Structure formats: C-alpha cells, structure tokens
Amino acid sequence: MSIQAYDIKARKKVSMKNPQPYLMKNGTWALKGTSAETGITLFKIVGKKQPTIPISKIGMLKNLFTSRKCECSKMC
C-alpha cells in the first residue's frame, strides 16, 4: 500500500516515499514525504487525527537492527 499525493512538478498523483506525520500550525495533521518521480517535497492533508503509517516487515526489521546502541554509546 503506497500513499498517493499530487506532484505539482509532474502534474499528476504519484506515490510518496518516506511519509512522516506532520502537525501544521492550525492543528491539522498532514503526511510529509518526497515524490517518487521528481524528488520534491509532498504534503497530503489528512485531518484532525494523527495518521498512523503502516510499516512493512522489512522496514521494521531494518529499524530494529540499525537503531541499537553500541559500546561507545552512539547510535550505530
């Protein structure tokens, strides 16, 4: 399942890469990500409730193995 948003540069709906929840000044939530075609920043307004983004199993495992602390107390 990919999130679709309108790309101004491409003049069509494209899939959004790396969508993240974003709280706007007026209290409305949006999804902020990059365009898969042109690489510009995309926003998709979703409403007053904070959106939940489904994480794929591969992404979940990637986060699990790359967000561990090592002996030097840095995130490695």
Rank of each mutant, 00 (worst) to 15 (best):
L42K: 15
M60F: 15
C72M: 04
T38N: 13
K69S: 07
G47P: 02
S73L: 10
K69Y: 08
M16Y: 14
M75T: 07
F65A: 12
L64Q: 10
P19S: 10
K9P: 00
C72V: 07
P21H: 03
L64E: 06
E37R: 14
E37V: 10
G33N: 12
T28V: 07
L23N: 09
E71G: 09
G39H: 07
M1W: 02
G47Y: 02
P19Y: 09
N18A: 12
T28H: 03
T28L: 08
A5I: 04
Y22Q: 04
K74W: 07
N26K: 06
G39D: 02
Q50C: 06
I45M: 01
M75Y: 08
K17S: 02
A36V: 13
P21R: 02
G47D: 07
K48I: 10
Q4M: 12
K13F: 09
K57Y: 09
N26E: 08
C70W: 05
V14D: 03
A36W: 00
I53Q: 04
T38D: 15
I55K: 06
L31H: 03
N63F: 04
K48N: 14
K13G: 02
L23W: 05
A5R: 09
P21F: 04
M24Q: 14
V46T: 14
R68Q: 05
M60Q: 11
I55H: 05
K62Y: 14
Q50L: 07
L64Y: 04
S56I: 04
S35H: 02
L42Y: 12
Q50K: 15
A10L: 07
Q4N: 14
S56Q: 09
I55F: 07
N26D: 09
L23Y: 06
L64F: 13
F65C: 06
P19H: 08
T41W: 03
A5M: 03
K25C: 01
R68P: 00
L23D: 02
P54G: 08
